[in-house]
Amino acid sequence: MSVVARASRIRTICDIQEKFRNGIFEFPKLVATADKMVRAAKLLNIPTFITTQSRAKLGNTVPELASNLTGDHIRADVDKTLFSMITPEIEKQLPVKAKDPLDVIIVGIETHICVTQTTLDLLARGHRVYVLVDGVSSINPEERGIALSRLRDAGATVTSSESVLFELLGDASHEQFRSISQLVKETKEETKGALGVFSRI
């Protein structure tokens, strides 16, 4: 059985906001991956944490994600000035360091700033972190590769959205296998497009 399937797991959506739409490298592809993952989180009832960076200036989380960011699985929707998502409000909901480690799956922006600082903070607290190569981006695309290499060296797992989805299921007998398989089929072209640009690291 997979590591992710054995452990507690959460999903984090880092600062995918309206004002970044025209600046972030391949923003629509990032949003497509994030949408697939938030739909899966809802199906699998995975605790999900959302942040925005200075919402008054940079806008709300993009509307494409809004319909699947409701329900009992949403544990926090926090506006922040910290670059890391590990704000006091979110940290209160996380287990004590190394006592009950989480598997944390991250999508969002920017790879080299907020995603990096969130990942390093989680690793320092003894959690396992999965950064989705097709689910993170930056204004300068070159920053992605530098950041992902650094995070891999720090102990994060850099992987793909589809790999994580099937790792979460762990077994074709999982009650949500058909739903997740259908989601993967529905988003096949978007996934291919995202990997085509984002896997070049």
Results as ranks from 00 to 15, higher is better:
residue 147 A to M: 08
residue 171 D to K: 04
residue 48 T to E: 09
residue 171 D to A: 02
residue 201 I to W: 13
residue 21 R to E: 12
residue 112 H to G: 05
residue 95 P to N: 03
residue 7 A to V: 12
residue 149 S to I: 05
residue 93 Q to T: 04
residue 129 V to A: 00
residue 187 T to E: 13
residue 130 Y to G: 01
residue 85 M to D: 06
residue 39 R to K: 14
residue 17 Q to D: 03
residue 30 L to A: 08
residue 97 K to I: 08
residue 98 A to V: 15
residue 160 S to I: 07
residue 198 F to W: 05
residue 37 M to Q: 01
residue 4 V to T: 13
residue 94 L to N: 05
residue 146 I to L: 15
residue 59 G to N: 14
residue 19 K to M: 07
residue 55 R to E: 13
residue 172 A to F: 01
residue 103 D to G: 07
residue 69 L to N: 01
residue 140 N to S: 14
residue 22 N to I: 12
residue 18 E to Q: 13
residue 180 I to K: 08
residue 35 D to P: 05
residue 161 S to M: 09
residue 193 G to E: 14
residue 33 T to Y: 00
residue 54 S to R: 15
residue 106 I to C: 00
residue 112 H to I: 10
residue 84 S to T: 11
residue 117 Q to K: 03
residue 69 L to A: 02
residue 86 I to S: 00
residue 153 D to M: 10
residue 44 L to P: 04
residue 16 I to G: 04
residue 118 T to G: 02
residue 152 R to I: 06
residue 166 F to N: 03
residue 23 G to L: 13
residue 107 V to H: 07
residue 111 T to L: 03
residue 87 T to P: 06
residue 171 D to C: 03
residue 194 A to H: 08
residue 195 L to H: 12
residue 185 K to R: 14
residue 45 N to K: 15
residue 108 G to I: 03
residue 49 F to A: 09
residue 12 T to A: 08
residue 100 D to L: 09
residue 44 L to G: 05
residue 34 A to Q: 04
residue 157 T to E: 02
residue 151 L to V: 10
residue 156 A to S: 00
residue 96 V to N: 09
residue 179 S to R: 09
residue 183 L to P: 12
residue 117 Q to R: 01
residue 132 L to R: 10
residue 119 T to G: 00
residue 23 G to F: 11
residue 3 V to P: 02
residue 33 T to H: 01
residue 67 S to L: 11
residue 94 L to K: 04
residue 136 V to P: 02
residue 65 L to T: 04
residue 52 T to G: 08
residue 198 F to L: 05
residue 64 E to V: 14
residue 18 E to F: 05
residue 24 I to A: 04
residue 153 D to Q: 14
residue 82 L to Y: 06
residue 145 G to H: 05
residue 74 I to K: 02
residue 47 P to M: 09
residue 28 P to L: 07
residue 133 V to L: 04
residue 199 S to R: 11
residue 102 L to E: 03
residue 178 R to Y: 07
residue 159 T to C: 01
residue 30 L to I: 08
residue 29 K to Q: 12
residue 180 I to S: 08
residue 34 A to D: 07
residue 27 F to I: 11
residue 130 Y to K: 01
residue 62 V to Y: 07
residue 197 V to G: 01
residue 175 E to C: 11
residue 148 L to S: 06
residue 196 G to E: 09
residue 168 L to M: 15
residue 21 R to I: 14
residue 15 D to C: 01
residue 10 I to G: 00
residue 141 P to C: 06
residue 138 S to V: 12
residue 165 L to V: 06
residue 97 K to A: 12
residue 12 T to G: 04
residue 178 R to A: 11
residue 195 L to K: 15
residue 71 G to I: 12
residue 155 G to R: 05
residue 126 G to V: 06
residue 192 K to C: 07
residue 102 L to C: 03
residue 168 L to W: 11
residue 8 S to Y: 10
residue 98 A to G: 13
residue 45 N to C: 13
residue 74 I to F: 06
residue 35 D to T: 14
residue 166 F to V: 06
residue 29 K to L: 13
residue 61 T to K: 11
residue 41 A to T: 08
residue 140 N to P: 07
residue 36 K to N: 01
residue 183 L to A: 11
residue 115 V to I: 00
residue 35 D to W: 09
residue 20 F to R: 06
residue 65 L to N: 01
residue 145 G to E: 05
residue 166 F to Y: 14
residue 27 F to S: 11
residue 17 Q to M: 05
residue 73 H to F: 03
residue 75 R to C: 04
residue 100 D to N: 14
residue 165 L to G: 02
residue 22 N to A: 15
